[in-house]
């Protein structure tokens, strides 16, 4: 029983302490850059529960989720094709590596030039950055299928489609999920950057606007909201991963 309590209490101590510290240290703050947390919280309550959610949060989540979704479909699909064809994978290897090192934010001015300011441009930017972690991880995962499995499949004359769906994808899935997690982090960053440069709605746009008007408590509330959303998306992905990879942990233990 006490063990269970410490398991939940122990991790909660530090965040609680940090928030309390912030609250007390900023209580009498007159600096315009660091307004009292009480005031930020009051604004947060007024703005985000739930007045502006429809205008800004939905737009931001759209960019992240559509962009990430396209990246996952493209990345896993292409990754399986490349992972199964050694020759092609080696041939396009250097090109993919180079594309990965191109900072996607550097494509922002170009994307704005070509597509204008709009939701399509933002989704494109997210895909340009989030595609590579899933893709490269899928290729690695598919190439890492255990050689014994290959032999078993061959000697049982498994149909190619069964081979891919029942053997390759499941055995590569832990690595695919690792790639998706990296892609999610990239997606949130790119969503935010693209809203700073080319948007008229979204959390990034809101934060930039409030900064320009020197409405610091509102700006802080937006920053906190973005942090919370990033964290929640991560938690949801971890839950999906745990559910999808349940068989994997069982087979290991």
């Amino acid at each position: 029983m006490t063990q269970r309590i410490t398991r939940f209490l122990l991790p909660a101590i530090v965040p609680a302490l940090l928030v309390a510290l912030w609250w007390m240290a900023s209580a009498g703050s007159t600096s315009i850059f660091f307004p009292p947390l009480a005031k930020i919280w009051q604004r947060f309550h007024e703005l985000w529960i739930f007045d502006l959610v429809g205008e800004h949060v939905v737009s931001s989540l759209n960019s992240v989720l559509i962009g990430l979704g396209i990246s996952i479909v493209l990345g896993v699909g292409l990754g399986i094709v490349l992972g199964l064809n050694d020759a092609i994978a080696t041939a396009v290897g250097p090109l993919l590596q180079f594309m990965r090192y191109l900072p996607a934010v550097a494509m922002l001015p170009l994307a704005i030039q070509l597509m204008g300011i709009g939701p399509d441009m933002r989704v494109l930017i997210v895909v340009l950055g989030a595609l590579w972690p899933v893709l490269l991880n899928t290729v690695d995962g598919v190439r890492g299928v255990h050689p014994a499995l290959v032999d078993v499949a061959k000697s049982n004359r498994l149909r190619p489609i069964d081979w891919v769906v029942r053997v390759v994808v499941p055995s590569a899935s832990p690595q695919i999920f690792a790639g998706i997690r990296a892609s999610l982090a990239v997606s949130v960053i790119l969503m935010f950057a693209s809203e700073l440069m080319g948007a008229s709605q979204g959390i990034g746009y809101f934060i930039l606007e409030t900064q320009r008007q020197f409405s610091l408590p509102e700006m802080w509330s937006g920053m906190i909201l973005l942090g919370v959303i990033g964290y929640l998306l991560n938690v949801i992905l971890l839950l999906v991963e745990r559910f999808a990879l349940d068989w994997h942990r069982e087979s290991r233990s």
Partner: peptide
């Protein structure tokens, strides 16, 4: 480790560019 892991998980999911305006 167990005291800090949740805090660290939260802090590292914050995209750094959020602090640009500040």
């Amino acid at each position: 480790y167990r005291m800090s892991v949740v805090t660290l998980d939260f802090l590292r999911t914050i995209p750094a560019l959020v602090f640009v305006p500040l």
